[in-house]
Write a protein that binds this DNA or RNA. Sequence first.
DNA 1: AGTGTAAATTTTTTT
DNA 2: AATTTACACT
Length: 724
Amino acid sequence: MDVSYILDELNDAQRDAVTADSPGTLVLAGAGSGKTRVLVHRIAWKIKVEGLSTHSIMAVTFTNKAAKEMRGRIESLLGSSLNHGMWVGTFHGLAHRLLKAHAQEAGLPNNFQILDSDDQLRQLKRIHRELALDDSRWPPRQSQYFINGHKDEGRRAAHIDDFGGDLYLTTMLKVYRRYEEICRQQGVIDFAELLLRALELWRDNPAILDHYQQRFKHVLVDEFQDTNAVQYAWLRLLASKGMAMTAVGDDDQSIYGWRGARIENIQQFSKDIENTHVVRLEQNYRSTATILKAANALIANNSQRLGKELWTEDGDGDKISLFAAFNEQDEARFLTDRIAELVRDDYRRSDIGVLYRSNAQSRILEEYLIRAGLPYRIYGGQRFYDRLEIKNALAYMRIVELRDDDTAIERVINTPTRGIGTRTVEILREYAREHQTSLWRAALAIIENGLLPARAGNALRGFLALVEDLAEQCRDKPLDEQINIAIDRSGLLAFHEKEKGEKGQARVENLHELITAAAAFEPEDEDIEPLRAFLDRAALDAGDQQADEHEDSVQLMTLHSAKGLEFPAVFIVGVEENLFPHKMSMEDPERLEEERRLAYVGITRAEQKLFLSYAESRRLHGQESFNSLSRFVREIPNELIDEVRINNTVSRPSSYAQSGVTTSQQASAAAMGIALGQRVLHSIFGAGVVLSFEGQGASARVQVNFEDEGSKWLVLQYANLQLL
DNA sequence: AGTGTAAATTTTTTT
DNA sequence: AATTTACACT
């Protein structure tokens, strides 16, 4: 059989990675070095040359998008469809599949539901209220962070030592325990629980583990640097009987430390598996030499690296553009102007990626893009299935599916309003807590025993009847019909139609979109009831971005969601201290290094052109701030950068007027060379930024926000400030 | 019980 | 700035 097509067009290192026949293979793949290609070709090699069955291969990725792409590329390389024999999916997706197959052994009801992070937070808020915790002293977010953090490390409440009654720990543990109890009662599991349960399932049921150990002969893991402790332990269990494993990763692209990812797993891998074959892929096929030089120089500032340097046979190409905008509007204008120029130069809009550190930055960019008539598409951000109206609609379906789902009940019991007020819900909660049961069962019992005033009782009975009616009506109907019935009968549609303004209209449209999505929904697994499969998909899948998918449009996204993508032209906006690196990450050296890796990821997305921009003054969350150029840009060698500042001659924006500084004051400040946002150096306090200004002549004072000392008012005459 | 308005709170990244 | 929460009013 001719299998040369599998190895053709691969370089030596890639070929080595594809054909390696060792128990452990570790591929350290730099950005743009053909990582996915190696994975896909390696799978083809295992099947076509080594004769493994598709049934015995498992491939794990981190995003649904990556899983889908991998499946597609394998199919097109092999020229045949993969069906369900091969397990390709995300850790969460595969864990979910596993738990559904063995729900009983995993201690879950057959129809367990997934609790997403938003619902998880709501649940925790309720627990805090129940435990009478003051939200300002004990923010629910902190509990969420605590619980997820420990779950990611494989620790349940019972495993955590409270160190003899430490108040913080005992409180957090109280919440954690109560949370576990409630989840168990309702038959719901959160994201971290999905992974932890899957691990425990194998650990505690040797027969089941053995079955999968027999079945899988080879497991391949993409983005290995992003695995957390539980995921790694899960893989180790599976591979403990000498099954072969391939891990592909890049320590320089580890950007999910905050989610429990452990870069160390890469090193651990070669320690744990004997005779690990290590392959380095350093030749880059994506970017110009200039872009790679910048990326290499930047990442060299990180201390803990396995070491790796990208190179290319390509030429230098264009320099990297750096634009200093006055403010975020100026930046947005620069962006749209340049994009328009690129489009004029025959770039397709979809060839252009716009990356930013945080989602909040996209709004202003969108505004300018719309004004310029440039179609765009946003990845990530508010996901379709996370929208309020969609979650409400799905909540009805979830209750139909599983009556005990308290989160869903709380969400829609009075949405749209139907006379069930806070007091009534309060009574339900109390009853449920006392009798250790769900809200649904509590409601049934309360009505049975006539524990409510007539009016509230009627309203509640109405809700229960509605749900039963929905369940009745939906039986044996097609999925889209079911959802249509639910949003109609529940009054949800009418509720949003009545809502005034564009918002209500958008919500109605989204609800229709949901019906369309339901009609188009094709379950991956025929055996599962469509509604169940649809709800699972809604929880686990980002909802592959709706609408306009085929129009040629500029691609907007956070740096995190850009990982794995590439564009001929890339804009990274907001390269400012405090924003990127984010101020939350500046104190801790490890987190700062993660920010640097994020910058590395961003830069290496670019094929030909890279534009960086920053704003000297930026209004974010209603507050004006003055940030200096990001240290990451300063870490790029000067000769690679071309500083452009098109609007150089335009007068400074109105930051003077806003702060109430008069023209004459401006004049005297200007005479000293001091402008708002100007960076200055003080002999004692160090470096800082001018925030405000008042008075003239001898009484002139400036307010400076010092990096180390905070903000201070100084008499200009004596301050002896040096301009930076 | 429901509705509207004022006050308070929150702003990193996501399966 | 925008969203959630608290509170007063109908």
